[in-house]
Design a protein around this nucleic acid. Structure first.
Length: 558
RNA sequence: GCGCCUGUAGUUCAGUGGAUAGAAUGUCGGCCCCCGGAGCCGAAGGUCGCAGGUUCGAAUCCUGCCAGGCGCGCCA
């Protein structure tokens, strides 16, 4: 499936450019063609700045080359008008017949209308959230969850074979600290006061876990005299407990992972020493001060070399992450996408360097960095540090504003923006929240369709519906937006930017509301009624489909 | 000090090197009957952080500066 109108136009321009050569305009090579939506209605439905680029290439006068190109274009059925305009654009007007066909396509193809095959079933993995199992998820993780899940939906929509993965850091020093903190709480329950270490986890949720550990492990805990083993036992229990909570939260947020990958499994399978020796054989590792260093600097200037294996013989987190990525690629993935918080920004070059050292192409790993969420309640800022304790969890946020609102909010900004999440505002605005605006359009359509069905107005032959009766500006605008949606989804996939779709949804909803307030769907005019019913049915399909990509529900009643 | 991200309307944010920079929210004003008024229409609101540069053309690219965020460990 490929319902890209931009592609049709590009192909046409391409052919036109080839003909230009025959007319004596020499172009050494064709510039990349960009099709965009102009800001003003009179500039057409789509436009290109190609004449500017051709002028640069050929040295010809811009209006000469622009007009010449337009004259060389074959008349295409999907366009009603093509026009060169000063200072150097070509404006395209989509033919009404094409829009009519689009509506029928949507009715027939349903959610396949926005599907593409250009991903070619290539295997892509999106790894996201991957929060340490040391405490509940906070809002920042919510942002990552929304981003990753939606991106995975979009990529699979355009033809990739997508897997969602969560990496669990269940090894290393932090788990020991966590276990120790639980042990301290356990002592408290027994009435023994032990001070919490400075680097311990202060969160009160550990008290519940300590109680739970006491109830569940009971005898085992008492019998275990070996301190090391006791801590291990406690650590394991705590990790599993927190993990269960994390899974539940994500489940409520509508996020399911295909695989939960444990760091500890890398240790068990000796994958870390293997990857280290592999990189060593390639010549990217040297020894200094008793430690093994990875030559980040041979891939990135201005980057310092990093330790993989410490003087004391232990591997660093970096080493296990190298092994983890080796593991990922060994599964035959074409593209690995990691979604990390801004606090890992400095980590990107060295990870990309490792991927190259392992022999994979530079771009086979793409890292999306999202900036932190500043959670607020009115003017008051709320900190979100797991170790410090006092914070509002993702679960609290969802409970307070709802999953749909939270998702839409996270997804209406680029990952690059430092976003402010004001709980008071999110709640206060919620009746007029953009997500409700979109959902309301959907519910309205459902309501009209219910009424039509009740009145026995049923379209039984799509081919006989006279869509050319839909001639008002509101109807044409709505149809145009639907026709452009496949391209928008494709572009969201290519740029890895789900937030583009929230913009599209608001525009479609707005166009629908405008149409609705000016025109009646169900009227005395049977033919017009049929046509409009088909139109809104198409809008319904598209809204539900796109909301689905964002992981947001489409309620039939509100 | 160095690296990355951000700075656009009162506020929160969109914006593909292109044409007169957009939306939501807030403020002010308007919407007869009618399929859902959680809607629609209109108005006001901008030195696109500042200063240079590249270009036919810059919110967008480059340099410097200012402000905020995040990093800069043989922690994870």
């Amino acid at each position: 499936m490929d319902n890209s109108i931009k592609k049709l136009i590009k192909d046409s321009l391409w052919k036109g450019c080839e003909k230009l050569e025959r007319v004596g305009i020499s172009l050494s090579s064709l510039p990349p063609i960009f099709i965009s939506q102009p800001k003003r209605r009179e500039w057409g439905d789509l436009s290109t700045n190609l004449p500017f680029l051709l002028q640069k290439k050929s040295g010809e006068d811009i209006s000469k080359i622009g007009n010449l190109l337009v004259s060389q274009l074959e008349s295409e059925g999907f366009l009603s008008r093509v026009k060169f305009v000063s200072p150097g654009f070509i404006n395209f007007f989509i033919a009404p017949s094409y829009l009519n066909q689009t509506i029928k396509k949507i009715i027939v193809q349903k959610e396949k209308f926005t599907q593409f095959s250009f991903g070619d079933k290539k295997r892509v993995q999106v790894e996201f959230v991957s929060a340490n199992p040391t405490g509940p998820l906070h809002v920042g993780h919510g942002r990552a969850a929304a981003l990753g899940d939606s991106l995975a939906n979009i990529l699979s929509k355009v033809g990739y074979e997508v897997k969602r993965e969560y990496y669990i850091n269940d090894a290393g020093g932090q788990i020991k600290r966590l276990a120790l903190s639980v042990w301290v709480r356990l002592q408290e329950i027994e009435g023994i006061h032990v001070p919490l270490p400075d680097d311990g986890y202060k969160g009160l949720y550990l008290i519940d876990i300590a109680k739970e550990a006491k109830d569940t492990l009971g005898e085992k805990l008492r019998q275990e005299k070996n301190e090391q083993k006791l801590i291990n036992l406690l650590g394991k229990f705590t990790v599993e407990y927190i993990l269960k909570e994390i899974k539940r939260d994500l489940d409520e947020f509508g996020v399911r992972f295909d695989r939960w990958f444990r760091e500890s499994s890398l240790y068990r399978n000796d994958e870390i020493p293997q990857v280290v020796s592999f990189i060593k054989d390639k010549g990217y590792i040297y020894e200094k001060d008793g430690a093994l260093w990875f030559k980040t600097s041979s891939f990135f200037k201005n980057e310092e070399d990093r330790v993989l294996k410490r003087k004391n013989g232990e591997y660093t987190y970096f080493a296990s992450d190298a092994a983890y990525h080796q593991n990922k690629f060994s599964r035959g993935l074409h593209q690995v996408i990691d979604i990390w918080g801004a606090d890992h920004i400095g980590y990107v070059p060295r990870m990309k360097a490792v991927v190259q050292a392992l022999g994979y192409p530079k771009d086979s790993l793409r890292v999306i960095i999202y900036q932190f969420v500043n959670l607020k309640r009115g003017e008051k800022s709320i900190s979100a540090s797991t170790r410090e304790g006092e914070f509002i969890s993702l679960r609290d946020v969802i409970k307070e504003v709802g999953s749909d609102v939270a998702r839409f909010f996270f997804l209406s900004r680029t990952g690059d923006s430092h976003l402010e999440f004001d709980l008071d505002l999110a709640k206060k605005q919620s009746p007029e929240n953009p997500v409700f605006y979109v959902q309301y359009a959907y519910a309205r359509i459902c309501s009209i369709l219910r009424k039509a069905t009740l009145e026995g107005i049923i379209v039984d032959n799509l081919e006989e519906v006279k869509l050319d009766l839909l001639i008002t500006p509101e109807e044409r605008e709505l149809m145009k937006e639907l026709a452009l949606l496949p391209d928008q989804i494709k572009e969201a996939a290519q740029s890895l930017e789900p937030h583009r779709l929230t913009v599209c949804l608001q525009e479609i909803a707005s166009s629908f509301h405008q149409f609705y307030t000016r025109h009646r769907v169900i009227s005395e005019d049977k033919d017009l009624t049929f046509a409009r019913l088909i139109l809104i049915k198409a809008v319904k399909i598209v809204i539900k489909d796109t909301l689905g990509l964002l992981g947001i529900s489409a309620p039939e009643r509100m």
